[in-house]
Design a protein around this nucleic acid. Structure first.
Lengths: 349, 349
DNA sequence: ATGAAAGCGCTAACAG
DNA sequence: CTGTTAGCGCTTTCAT
């Protein structure tokens, strides 16, 4: 703030060397520089409190060593996990991560993408909530390196890391069936995304397998599509509560409930308790995602684990591979869920 | 990737104008440019798929319009809230936020600070976990704009936004006393930070006020100082469980427990339940922080709310003020906690 | 209203 | 081993 920032020219002058030499020393170049000079330059740089200006370097080298990540919400522990995985890999490759929250807003998402590109990131990892088709086409044509996670993007040039939601919810539903349940409700946010639709499909798959279909229509409770822009955990939670309230108006109640995520399951359990219904004694509940919350609930939540951290690691590894030019041609990887049986499901006789 | 990126020179050539004019149009400069030319330049820019290179602009203008934020962990919902507040203010002022997780690691913290400065951020918002005194002195001397949040930094030149932890835990403890409790335990992570120490002091304050001090030593359960570097919510949760287990070995049990945060309280309640103790029937529990989890627990957690979002907003507003030169001389602001009474505390007769 | 040219801080040929 | 120099993409005097 006070005075002009120090540059390599200042240092060069101070040690009677050329800026080139100073640059070579301070940027850890391979280029040979005599030991004494090197020492001296380093010493003086430290003494003068030199801080390199990366803008200069990056502009010159045309390489920012950074990648962008756009996710709907960092408040969602699900994404927090994914981001941790991304950062680990990025860091170990010397890359920096620029993180953006789209807040479930497609316009913000697009704006952030643009901003990141202007900042010259080398690639993007994106969990897109945009429903607009083909909005990425222009960028892709220009050679943008992009990895899509969780939410599928319908463009066959995009690398995708997905979870097998369909298999996951089938797993959950089958577990319930094995425990003797036949009346299984489905509580979820609106099926306005492929991931959620697949959740529904998996549920139906398991039901069909067991000859339990069709089920009462009222046992499928979905919230309205309008996604809250001030999205937070409480939103999902309250959703679970509200839909449970609706469900409990039926005369014929289910013995078990499948939910679209753990946060919703938490709401379901909470409402059930408030209405005097014991979990799992009277109603069993299974969650989805296996976020840390699920172990903290009472009863501990039976849920489906998604390898979130692994997704982050994979996405970033893939991106690193792309940037290094070792492009394998596998465009899609599908991560498998596993069932985590805890205490929110009762065995029915 | 494919071809060379497009610059204003390419556009200039294409429309038969000078780069200067193109720059003026595309950077929304005040400078007058004829309407037709302006139109044409914009059209061609879009057509050619031009993406401005901010490195060039920022280097020239010596202004990145970005600030850095360093927090211990984005997985902690507490900080997620703070960050949301920061981002809101930053965005509305046209600033970008560069977010870094120090993972409770002082070395990483220092490294990120350096990286951010090399990226030419205009200021830093920091929740420091470093115990080293004076490590910021050098930066401050060079005029670094820095706001410290939550954790206090012992340098009177640093702007600080804090919570009144001491008053907060006194609030919690007094609430318990008002409900008739006299045997009140304290379960917390190690008191190795001023914030946690203040928590303890507030607890003692309230006890003393009520003539309840000194209390049995065994009712104060603290975990070891070694902070897990793979810090996550489960760590706090398990801490709560472990310390509760220790506490329950006593013959004379407390009727209420105060905790250092909601995550720990969740662990306490969970362990209590597992040991067959009803909350709040047999033991009352109060949390701290009021993260969203606290409403989701059964029973809903009585806790102390900290205005986290507000802290983020304030910190960023302060930084913006500094950057604009409207430096008020108020260096410290202390945010006040409030008690949120829910269902985890019973009235004792 | 438009353009020529210098230069932000740094690196990388190229020359010595 | 060291230095000179051009220029990354952009903005901004200063001319015209």
């Amino acid at each position: 703030m006070s005075d002009k920032p120090i540059t390599i020219y200042d240092i060069a002058q101070n040690v009677n060397a050329s800026p080139a030499t100073v640059s070579r020393v301070l940027s850890n170049s391979e280029y040979p520089v005599s030991a004494k000079l090197s020492q001296k330059i380093k010493a003086v740089a430290k003494e003068m409190g030199y801080t390199p200006n990366m803008l200069g370097r990056q502009l010159k080298k045309n390489n920012t060593m950074s990648i962008g990540v756009i996710i709907p919400s960092i408040s969602n522990p699900f994404y927090a996990d994914v981001v941790l995985g991304i950062e680990e890999i990025a860091r170990s490759n010397g890359y920096q991560v620029l993180l953006c929250n789209s807040h479930q807003n497609p316009d913000l998402e697009a704006e952030y993408l643009q901003t990141l590109l202007e900042k010259q990131v080398k690639g993007i990892i994106l969990s897109s909530i945009s429903r607009k088709k083909g909005w990425l086409a222009g960028y892709l044509a220009k050679g943008l390196n992009i990895i899509s996670i969780d939410q599928k993007i319908d463009n066959r040039h995009v690398y995708q890391i997905e979870f097998d939601y369909r298999k996951g919810s089938a797993l959950a539903c089958r577990h319930l069936i094995e425990q003797g349940h036949k009346k299984i409700a489905f509580i979820s946010a609106a099926l306005d995304r492929p991931t959620r639709l697949n959740l529904y499909r998996g549920y139906q798959d398991a039901l069909r397998e067991a000859g339990l279909t069709p089920l009462k229509k009222e046992w499928i409770q979905l919230s309205k599509a309008c996604e809250n822009l001030n999205y937070d955990s409480a939103f999902e939670f309250n959703n679970g509560k509200q839909l449970t309230r609706n469900l409990l108006k039926m005369k014929d109640l289910p013995t078990a409930i499948i939910t679209c995520n753990d946060l919703t399951a938490a709401g379901v359990i909470n409402e059930l308790n408030e209405q005097g219904l014991h979990v799992p004694g009277e109603v069993s509940v299974v969650g989805f995602d296996n976020i840390e919350l699920s172990q903290m609930l009472t009863p501990a939540l039976t849920t489906v684990d998604l390898p979130k951290y692994e997704m982050g690691r994979l996405a970033c590894s893939k991106l690193m591979a792309l940037l290094n030019g070792d492009d394998t041609n596998q465009k899609e990887v599908m991560l498998q869920p596993i069932l985590i049986a805890r205490n929110s499901v009762a065995r029915l006789e």
